[in-house]
């Protein structure tokens, strides 16, 4: 069954949203789960969080930032094009909680991953305080969608071009220091942001859930590429996660493992860019 791209939208420079035909995945998707995607026959297997899905239409929505060869290739596909392989939904759905006050802390493209959980938790009757942030105003995505499912929302940008200048975690810290009570903090974004969120909440004893973005290959527990230390034990993000108790996660190890192929990624990126230039010369 072809995984055809039905809609494509540029949300911000280098951040794209696609709606893809994938009826089997749309039928089963739950907030917090993800897919493993392979762009073309040479492609690597990469995890992407399910942002939205429509069972009736048989579609899933994905948001990605173009950072490496795989996401750049994905970004080059247009409406009507097909993605070679999509496996899913994989990973465990996020925990259902009701009637709690929950603070959602999300940054960058991670807002895309936080959105379905925010929506679900709001619909389950929780009171949602969202703190979302990006490097700059133009990189801030899903602001309207997040507003729709939040009872309160705070916005930050690193450069101050929108909302408050600074980091999401600074807002969280201030709220906690002012005595604001949360039953739970859900943090989804770059590893360093999730790490700092956990550092901020720990002294206040607030339960903090993080959704990890480990490097992955199989997505089904076969390979162990996504292993991470949680509470002193090795866990696989794909089958035991992706959500974990953030206070137990060894973030330094996670960040170290995410850097494993930095050199190779750079080589691949340069080769890819060169090829694109050659192609555009040839066609131009």
């Amino acid at each position: 069954m072809p995984f055809r791209i039905l809609k494509k939208k540029i949300l911000a420079p280098s951040i794209k949203k696609i709606v893809v035909k994938a009826p089997l995945i749309a039928r089963k998707a739950k907030a917090g789960q993800f897919v493993i995607l392979r762009v073309d026959e040479h492609g690597e297997r990469i995890p992407l969080t399910l942002v939205d899905w429509n069972e009736k239409e048989g579609t899933i929505t994905l948001i990605f930032q173009e950072v490496g060869v795989s996401t750049l290739k994905l970004g080059l596909l247009e409406e009507g094009d097909e993605i070679h392989d999509i496996l899913g939904p994989v990973g465990n759905p996020g925990e259902y909680v009701r009637d709690q006050t929950i603070c959602v802390v999300a940054g960058g493209v991670g807002i895309g991953a936080a959105y379905p959980r925010t929506k679900q938790l709001k619909e389950l009757g929780n009171y949602i305080v969202s703190i979302i942030g990006a490097r700059s105003a133009e990189l801030l995505i899903l602001e309207e969608e997040m507003k729709k499912y939040s009872d309160e929302i705070y916005i930050t940008t690193d450069d101050g071009s929108k909302g408050r200048k600074g980091f999401v975690t600074e807002v969280l810290k201030e709220l906690l220091e002012k005595g604001r009570k949360f039953d739970q903090v859900l943090s989804i974004g770059p590893p360093i942001m999730m790490k700092v969120t956990c550092d901020v909440t720990k002294p206040f004893g607030v339960k903090t859930i993080v959704s990890l973005n480990s490097m992955m290959v199989c997505g089904m527990g076969m390979c162990g590429a996504c292993r991470v230390t949680v509470g002193g034990e090795t866990k696989f993000t794909c089958v035991h996660g992706p959500e974990f108790d953030g206070h137990l996660v060894d973030f330094n190890e996670l960040m170290m493992r995410l850097r494993m192929y930095k050199e190779e990624e750079q080589i691949a990126l340069e080769k890819f860019k060169k090829n694109i230039l050659v192609k555009s010369h040839a066609s131009g």
């Binding site: 040479h42 690597e44 297997r45 290959v217 390979c223 190779e264 990624e265 691949a268």
Partner: peptide, 18 residues
């Protein structure tokens, strides 16, 4: 898996998997 299924021995020419 990286070598056999993902053909990492052809990285970066014909495989994106390092």
């Amino acid at each position: 898996i990286r070598i056999n299924l993902m053909r990492a021995f052809e990285f970066p020419e014909k495989s994106d998997t390092p």
